[in-house]
Amino acid sequence: MSNEIVTTGTFRVKRGLAEMLEGGVIMDVVTSEHAKIAEDAGAAAVMALERVPADIRRDGGVARMSAPEMIESIQQAVSIPVMAKVRIGHFAEAQILEAMEVDFIDESEVLTPADEEKHINKHPFGVPFVCGATNLGEALRRISEGAALIRSKGEAGTGNIVEATRHLRAILTELAELAKLGELAEQEIPVISALKAKAKEHRVPLELVREVAENAKLPVPLFCAGGIATPADAAFVMQLGAEAVFVGSGIFKSDNPQKRAEAIVEATTNYMDPHILLKVSRNLGEPMTGDEIDKLETRLADRGW
């Protein structure tokens, strides 16, 4: 019946999984019990890591890829996709995660960077990568390196949404500006040189800038991460234009993780319905405490470039 020509690891297949996660919540989990709670609460995927960002922040020291046996225990516990983090630039950690058949690799500023010059060349990998970005240039550089999904960096482990808001707004505003150029690109030679200037400014190929300008959209989904602690936070960033949310410390550092997790899932689907948002925001217990950004010792979002 079929020609039996089968290809794996294409960009379409990698981006495809990112698209399947749209409208969903990806939850940080540190044990297989957490992972089960997350799956039961309706998580679209889990991020397996040894310590949630709030604890990484508190403990200090070098944060690395989690131990394989810890990630494997989570792979065995749930049927939804399992993601795991590697340090920026650390392609050997990524090779190990790929050998474990992790579903998605997060090249993450939450861990201590391994390379200050180069991010991972993500094209040769069969497993898709997600990378953080604080602005459009950073997003485009990660995409040209092969990322299949972009998320805001936010300021992980703070329970404070303000940085994620800044990053989402920056990316979306710059996208809209580029789209204005795209509308004119067919007719005017000065516009082509403006696109070239943008490509140079962002240090990415002209073709990528042109494609983004013409489609008025990134070629991969844009999710929000960093500081989401409440159902209202999830609805807020979805209304701003995020296509799904990552929740790190916000769930398992709160009073009632199961209930809060379910509430954030419902809020992410029904982000435009204030009555449902009100209903799911009731009786959740205390959220994680949270930090003010200018009192932090380490700004994770400054990692990467």
């Binding site: 079929s2 495809g16 058949e101 069969g126």
Partner: peptide, 17 residues
Amino acid sequence: ERNAYGRQISSFEASLD
């Protein structure tokens, strides 16, 4: 049966008649 072809690394494209 869910995920019967395996994890994401085994996801694929094929031309189907």
